[in-house]
Computed example of a mutant assay.
Amino acid sequence: MNIKVLAFDTGGTVLDWHSGICKAFALAGKRHGVERDWHAVTNDYRRASMAEIVGKLEPAFNMDAVHRTVIDGVLSRHGLEVFTPQDRTQIHQAWYGLDAWPDFSAALGRLKRKLPVVSFTMLPLAMVMAVSRRNGLEWDAVISCEMIGAYKPQPLAYEQAARWMDVAPGQILMVACHNFDLNAARACGYHTAFVRRPLEWGPAGPPDPHPHPDCTVVVNDFSALAQHLGA
């Protein structure tokens, strides 16, 4: 491999969205004295959000807007209409307070000393800025699909990201825990690294945990990725 840039999926691969959002639902429920399977509610929220943004071209909204708009339907499906507008705002704002996976920060420092590191994400730029500052993540660049106007797995997203990084697709290693992202990147000429995140969806486990056999690299954690790349 002649890799010149490392591009990281950020939601799920770098950020533990499930724990942060599940906690926000549980806190709202506690205020109203209601109990649910908050893990299931959180995953329903995530699935509904992804369904509204994945693969979109030139949408009139970004993922932040989706997080705001789909929550009403999620709460209705789970009998949680008691949640107030303030509760809904608190849950939405929890996206801006997510923690990174514990193994990422140290590995990012190692990797950055060897190669440029780029957040290439469907999350909106403002959210990536907020969570990166919260977690001390220093990217060389952030490329959000909202900037391109094409959301993964649209080929245009990967093609434009490569143009902006001024490298050939075959000189980029796309790092993610999601096959749909890596498969699309590979189809556009990228090399791909699958990093397992077994807790991404909480106790239920990820819906697609097994890496595609065509992945260039498969590792269990970010420390192993850094070691594999000689960082």
Results as ranks from 00 to 15, higher is better:
Met1Trp: 05
Met1Pro: 12
Asn2Ile: 08
Val5Asp: 08
Thr10Gly: 04
Gly12Tyr: 13
Thr13Lys: 12
Val14Leu: 03
Ser19Leu: 14
Phe25Met: 10
Ala28Tyr: 03
Ala40Asn: 05
Val41Asn: 06
Thr42Met: 12
Asn43Pro: 10
Tyr45Asn: 01
Met50Thr: 10
Val54Ser: 01
Gly55Ala: 09
Pro59Gly: 06
Ala65Met: 09
His67Asn: 11
Arg68Phe: 09
Arg68Tyr: 10
Thr69Ser: 12
Val70Ser: 08
Val70Trp: 14
Asp72Arg: 15
His78Trp: 14
Leu80Cys: 02
Glu81Cys: 13
Val82Met: 10
Phe83Lys: 06
Thr84Phe: 14
Pro85His: 04
Arg88Ser: 05
Arg88Thr: 06
Gln90Pro: 04
Ile91Met: 13
Gly97Gln: 11
Ala106Gln: 14
Leu108Gln: 04
Gly109Asn: 15
Val117Met: 09
Phe120His: 09
Thr121Asn: 01
Thr121Lys: 00
Pro124Met: 12
Leu125Ser: 09
Met127Ala: 03
Met129Asn: 08
Arg133Phe: 02
Asn135Leu: 09
Glu138Tyr: 10
Ala141Gly: 13
Ser144Thr: 13
Ile148Phe: 05
Tyr151Asn: 00
Ala157Pro: 09
Tyr158Gln: 10
Glu159Val: 07
Gln160Met: 02
Ala162Tyr: 04
Trp164Pro: 15
Trp164Leu: 08
Met165Val: 01
Asp166Leu: 08
Asp166Cys: 13
Gln171Trp: 04
Asn179Leu: 04
Asp181Pro: 06
Ala187Thr: 11
His191Glu: 15
Thr192Val: 04
Thr192His: 08
Arg196Ser: 00
Glu200Ala: 04
Glu200Cys: 11
Trp201Tyr: 12
Trp201Leu: 05
Gly202Lys: 11
Gly205Ala: 10
Pro206His: 03
Asp208Asn: 07
Val217Ser: 11
Val218Met: 13
Val219Ser: 03
Asn220Lys: 12
Asp221Asn: 14
Phe222Asn: 09
Ala226Thr: 02
Ala226Trp: 05
Leu229His: 00
